[in-house]
Amino acid sequence: MDTAEQAYDMTNIEKAETVPPRPDPGPEPAVVQFAPEAEPAEQEVAEERAEYDTIGDVTAKDAVMTVRDCNVFYGDNHALQHVNLDVGRNEVVALIGPSGCGKSTFIRCLNRMNDTIETARVTGEIRLHGDDINSRETDVVLLRARVGMVFQKPNPFPKSVYDNVAYGPKLHGLASNRTELDEIVERSLLRAGLWDEVKDRLDDPGTGLSGGQQQRLCIARTIAVDPEVILMDEPCSALDPIATAKIEDLIDELAQNYAIAIVTHSMQQAARVSQRTAYFHLGKLIEVDSTDKVFTNPGHRLTEDYVTGRFG
């Protein structure tokens, strides 16, 4: 194992055996053998490194989060391998790739949601404005207030619309009185483009909204705590095209204030909403570049195969 790797402090891992690990990548298909200089199976780390070199520029102009040599293990399964990637201010990074390629695993590293998976082990250096989020000093509660997350399936709390949005600010003490809280709720719902639809039924249960409204409610809930980064894990996969279009417009708007990393299975969506695109394959980050470049002139054969629909 790489000496630079720092074993992640297990004592910090919070327990919650909720989310099963993402599906295994499975046996490597033949297409993977793109690096002729790499030898299979056991070999020295130094030699191995070559295989993990990512094509394109992993850095961002105004980086909010920087990830260096990030590895995730689910038990013995090396699910994410030596990933370097920045997420910049006011930009949307799309993470694409076939199922089980590690893009969700990666995004869950950024706010330490992998802590909730007992068998998961994260190594490497992930910095938010220079602070190592995996260090002992980092408070995971604070981290998650700074790095919000929107999940694949809309998951509003089974409470009222108002309480859904107000929960985060209340938790972190962002509002000193009811008026302030009302303002935060209204502002968040406005920004999430949901205010007009729900302003008359703030006391109705959030679970009674339509799927697209629920997802926008979840986004409102996330931005109510005013994070710096928003992580979105396939936010539109459970929605119809009209709701998807609304969310995409919303992502565009949010990008003016936040750094956004979005996992998506839809290449059209990645092309529409993102400025940079990262292509993952079997736990490796293959290519990162401006979205235009990745979709029109990819640097790697695997990327090309994927974005042209030859596999995936």
């Binding site: 909730t116 709390f157 979840c218």
Partner: peptide, 27 residues
Amino acid sequence: VPPSVREAALGVGASAMQTVFHHVIPL
């Protein structure tokens, strides 16, 4: 109680105990 509720609570920065007391136990 579905894991998505726990994830949602953890995602907005609730601690493990807050997640349990605010969401899991009431449900």
